[in-house]
Nucleic acid binder design. Structure first.
Lengths: 211, 211
DNA sequence: GTCTATATCAGGATAGAC
DNA sequence: GTCTATCCTGATATAGAC
């Protein structure tokens, strides 16, 4: 944020923390694009504008970078979702809460695509040690949605002929995958989110007459 | 199929083609589990019960194995879908055709999970040369669904306030992702497919009264 | 805090025996 | 058709100068 460092030689950096964030961002982008194993720290370093050796000043290992990228992917989305739902009136119907959740999930995800897509793509492929550490964050977010859906079910707003677990897995999976094909050139984000929401809520079929 | 080879030394195999298929299957499994780059040909060879050098008798390169695994992932699903839909009466409503397509897609995918999941997981991460060759097969399958949905739309059976392209991408993506979390212990495949279908057709909300 | 080395190890691919 | 042995390249991580 402040660039007024006084007397440092040109080969030294001004803000070490900015470098760290840049490394994380470029790592996420490259993990997404080429996978975890295929991404070399040399590439990450190049993209972040440092030399490979310098990465080890900020991180202990490649796996530590992985862990931070994964956590960030979920947390960004989770926080957006919670913020939107908390902003609703206390007595808002569950349908409105779920709608806010869907919109928040899509928004958080599509605005930090490298972190969220990297998470989706590589989670299935990383060493068990990395998965285990990351699992806590994942579980929390899943529980949040489970609670939301079960409350809607108890209030009679959700269909009863499909299990809430399957609904959660199916819907969140479907939302997540949009990051792989969403194209902002097809229309505004708002219109995109609206189309996704109506399909999730009411399905793909034409209705005899909608009220 | 026939095991009556007469006089071959123990270190030689009986059926070269079976070895080739085994290599493909194990490659798919390992690509799915660890990614393309992280999977070594030594691992594939071990899993297939041969030595690393032997792979090069059956395949020219690692990338050729990749190509065959990817194509197989789509083709298995495509063929199942087409077979189910072709088996319907000629005048079947589009809703029934789409239902058969959904069930066929799920069935083909979940019964060849290593090929289909490997495809989903690694397609975004492989070299452009491999993507380009595989794109033809992908495009064909997408076109097939586009045609299905556009016919349903023309017949007034599909909702009109969401684009068919978005519906296709969203629904196929959602179906695909089930391979990442489907658990046969939660119930029969038939019941699973039914739950997915009602959600796709009619959404997650409770209906005032269903007819 | 970043650099230039470099130690160490592992993977794709090939050659040639059997 | 499968094996053993090896070439060659490139990756993580470390050491120590600046």
């Amino acid at each position: 944020m402040n660039d007024k460092s006084a007397s440092k030689s040109a080969s030294h950096d001004l803000d070490g923390n900015a470098t760290r964030e840049r490394i994380l961002l470029e790592a996420a982008r490259l993990f997404r694009q080429h996978g975890y194993a295929a991404t070399t720290l040399r590439e990450v370093a190049d993209a972040a504008g440092v030399k490979a050796g310098s990465i080890y000043y900020h991180f202990e290992s490649k796996e530590q970078i992985l862990g931070e990228v994964l956590d960030k992917g979920i947390k960004i989305v989770y926080e957006t979702v919670r913020a939107r739902i908390d902003a609703l009136p206390k007595d808002a119907p569950w349908r409105d809460r779920i709608a806010a959740g869907i919109e928040g999930h899509l928004w958080g995800m599509l605005h930090h695509g490298d972190f969220t897509s990297a998470n989706m793509r590589i989670y299935g492929q990383i060493p068990e040690s990395a998965k285990a550490k990351h699992r806590v964050v994942r579980r929390e977010y899943a529980d949040y949605w489970d609670h939301l859906l079960q409350s809607a079910l108890a209030a009679g707003e959700l269909r009863t002929d499909a299990s809430t677990t399957i609904i959660r897995l199916f819907v969140i999976g479907a939302l997540n995958w949009t990051v792989e094909w969403y194209n902002p050139q097809r229309g505004s984000f708002q219109d995109f989110a609206r189309q996704i929401s109506v399909v999730v809520f009411d399905g793909i079929l034409a209705h005899q007459e909608s009220n």
